[in-house]
Design a protein around this nucleic acid. Structure first.
Length: 484
RNA sequence: GUCCCCAUCGUCUAGAGGCCCAGGACACCGGCUUUUCACGCCGGGUACGCGGGUUCAAAUCCCGCUGGGGACGCCA
C-alpha cells in the first residue's frame, strides 16, 4: 500500500505552495488507495509555535485533505510531531556512529564560525566546507556536547529518478560531512526527515523544488543506514505574478485568507492543481475528478506564476456549480453575524429566490451577500450617488405611479407583470430604461443588481410597493449609512 | 562564486518527430443580447528565447548560449 506524507513545519500559516504539495500528495495517496500521513516538523523550537501547527491543521481540514495518520488521529507509526521523537533520532545516529559511517564532532559553533570567516577572508571562490576536524579522532572529551556528522565520500555522484523531473545527479564533491544530530540532541532537517520517512514506511516524498538540493544528503543517509530510499517528486515553485518568490506582498498567501474571503475549498484545490498539473484542455475539476485523473507524469516541470484573476474565475465557476441548498447554507453562514438583517426573510423563500438572481454576478459568497442583502433588510441601504443620479423628483413620481399599477394587477406572476408594465410604459411613451434604473435603486438601493422583475419577485408586492413609494417621500436618505 | 532546476501567447497550459504557418483557459480588444451590472454567445490579436546540430521532417531529440528560478546553516 502506498504511503505518502506531508510534513510541514509550523512556522506560520499554510501557504499556497505548501497547500499544493499537500494536495498532490493527498491526490496520489487517494488515487492509489494508499495512506496519507501528516507529520509536523517542529524540531527548531525557536521558530515554531502551537498556533501555527493548529492553523495548518485547520487549513488542511478546510481544504478537505484528510489524513489517515498524524496529529489528532494518531496511527501506528507515531508520534507524528518530530519534537516527540528525539529518542528515535538519537538511536539512529548512534547506530551510524557505531557502524563507523558517522562520527562525533566536538567543534563548537564558534570554532566553525571562525573557520568559515577565515575561509571567506582568504578570498577562495569555493564554497565553505567543514574541514573534517573530528573526522578521524576518537579522543573524545568527557562531558562535552557534540554533534554527529556523516562521513561523506567526496568521490562519485549521488542521483535519483525524480517522479516529476526525471534523472538528477549531483557530484558528491559538493557535499560535506554534514550534521545529523545537533549538539542539543535535535536532528537537523535532512536527518529527521530520513529517519521519520523510514520509520513511517513512507514510499513517496513530494515537496517543493527548493528541496532538490536536500535530496543527495538524504540519499547518503539512506545509504549509510543500508536502507532503500523512497521515491521523490519535486514540484516546481509557485512564483509571484512578476516571477519572484511568492510572498505576502503579491497576494494572499495563506489558504485561510481565501476561506475568509469567501472562496470555496474545491475552487482553491482546483486552481492549485492547475498550477503545474494539467489534463489536456480541461480547466475545471471536482475533487473526485482530481483524484481520478492525477498522476506524476502530468505534473509540469517549470515554475508557475500566481494569477489572482484566473483564480477568481475558477472560484466563480465553482460557486455557480453549487446546488441551491449548498449555496443557501453558505450564505446563511456568512449572514449569521449580520445583526441588521431580518431573519424572517431567511426562511420564507426570499433568500433562495434572491440567491438565484445573484449567482451570475458574484464570484464569492460575500459578493452574493452584497447583492442580495437588500432583500433581507427592513429597507434598502441607499447608495448615495445612485440615489442622486436616478431618484429625481420626476422619477419618484413615476415610481409612485408604477406602485399604483402594481397594486392594481390581478397577478404577481413575472411574465404577466412584465407584459403589463410594457403596456403601461408604451401608453406613456416611455422606455423600459426610464423605469428600470430608478426602480432598481428604490428597491435595492443599488444601481447594479438583478433584473427589475426578478427583484420585484424577490421582494413581493407589499415590500416592493412600500419601497417604490418611499423613494418619493423619504429620499434622499442617509441615516442607514450610505455606502458608495 | 559553486552546484542544481527550468524555458510554447501577458498568465496557466495542450503538445511525448510529421495530425501544429501551434489548441484550450484566464486576461485583453471588438460585437451580439439588454432594464443597470453581470452571465451567456460570436469574433480578434498575441507565443514555440537565440545559435548550432541530428533527421526526408523539430515546438518536440542533442549541444552551446542567453534568460529566469532555487540551494549553498548545529533553519526547515
Amino acid at each position: 500500500m502506498v504511503r505518502v506524507r506531508f510534513a510541514p513545519s509550523p512556522t506560520g500559516y499554510l501557504h499556497l505552495g505548501g497547500a499544493r504539495t499537500a494536495l498532490f500528495s493527498w491526490l496520489w495517496a487517494r488515487s492509489q488507495g494508499g495512506r496519507f500521513v501528516l507529520r509536523i516538523e517542529d524540531t527548531d523550537r525557536a521558530r515554531h509555535d502551537e498556533a501555527s501547527a493548529e492553523a495548518i491543521l485547520e487549513s488542511l481540514r478546510w481544504l478537505g485533505l484528510d489524513w489517515d495518520e498524524g496529529p489528532e488521529v494518531g496511527g501506528d507509526f507515531g508520534p507524528y510531531f518530530q519534537s516527540e521523537r528525539r529518542d528515535i533520532y538519537r538511536l539512529f545516529a548512534e547506530k551510524l556512529v557505531a557502524r563507523g559511517v558517522a562520527y562525533r564532532c566536538y567543534a563548537t559553533p564558534e570554532e566553525l564560525k571562525a573557520a568559515r570567516d577565515a575561509h571567506t577572508a582568504s578570498g577562495s571562490k569555493a564554497p565553505f566546507k567543514y574541514p573534517g576536524l573530528w573526522r578521524d579522532r576518537t579522543d573524545w572529551p568527557d562531558n562535552q556536547p557534540y554533534a554527529i556528522r556523516l562521513k561523506v565520500d567526496a568521490r562519485g555522484q549521488t542521483g535519483w529518478n525524480d517522479l516529476v523531473k526525471g534523472r538528477i545527479d549531483i557530484p558528491n564533491q559538493t557535499q560535506q560531512d554534514f550534521i545529523l544530530l545537533r549538539s542539543d540532541g535535535l536532528p537537523l532537517y535532512n536527518f529527521g526527515c530520513v529517519v521519520d520517512d523510514l520509520s513511517m514506511k513512507i514510499d513517496v516524498v513530494a515537496r517543493g523544488d527548493d528541496h532538490v538540493i536536500n535530496t543527495p544528503p538524504q540519499l547518503l543517509i539512506y545509504e549509510a543506514l543500508g536502507q532503500e530510499p523512497p521515491r521523490f517528486a519535486h514540484l516546481p515553485m509557485i512564483l509571484s505574478p512578476n516571477g519572484e518568490k511568492l510572498s505576502k506582498r503579491h497576494a494572499a498567501v495563506s489558504v485561510l485568507e481565501y476561506r475568509d474571503a469567501g472562496y470555496l475549498p474545491e475552487a482553491v484545490l482546483n486552481y492549485l492543481a492547475r498550477l503545474g498539473w494539467s489534463h489536456g484542455d480541461q480547466e475545471i475539476f471536482s475533487k473526485e475528478e482530481l483524484v481520478r485523473l492525477f498522476s506524476w507524469e502530468s505534473v509540469g516541470t517549470s515554475a508557475a506564476r500566481y494569477d489572482a484573476k484566473k483564480f477568481l474565475h475558477v472560484q466563480a465557476t465553482h460557486l455557480r456549480q453549487q446546488s441551491p441548498e449548498r449555496l443557501a447554507e453558505l450564505v446563511r453562514d456568512a449572514l449569521s453575524s449580520d445583526a441588521a438583517i431580518d431573519t424572517r426573510w431567511l426562511e420564507d423563500g426570499t433568500l433562495d429566490k434572491a440567491i438565484a438572481t445573484a449567482i451570475s454576478r458574484a464570484a464569492t459568497v460575500p459578493e452574493v451577500v452584497d447583492t442580495i442583502r437588500y432583500a433581507l433588510l427592513p429597507k434598502p441601504v441607499l447608495d448615495a450617488s445612485a440615489g442622486a443620479k436616478f431618484l429625481t423628483e420626476a422619477a419618484c413620481a413615476l415610481l409612485a405611479d408604477f406602485a399604483t399599477l402594481l397594486e392594481g394587477l390581478p397577478t404577481w406572476e413575472s411574465s404577466a407583470l412584465e407584459a403589463a408594465t410594457q403596456d403601461w410604459l408604451a401608453a406613456r411613451d416611455l422606455s423600459m430604461k426610464a423605469l428600470a434604473q430608478p426602480a432598481r435603486v428604490a428597491l435595492t438601493g443599488q444601481s447594479k443588481n438583478a433584473g427589475l422583475f426578478e427583484i420585484l419577485d424577490v421582494l413581493g408586492l407589499a415590500r416592493s410597493r412600500e419601497r417604490l413609494r418611499a423613494a418619493g417621500s423619504a429620499l434622499p436618505s442617509g441615516d442607514e449609512g450610505v455606502s458608495s
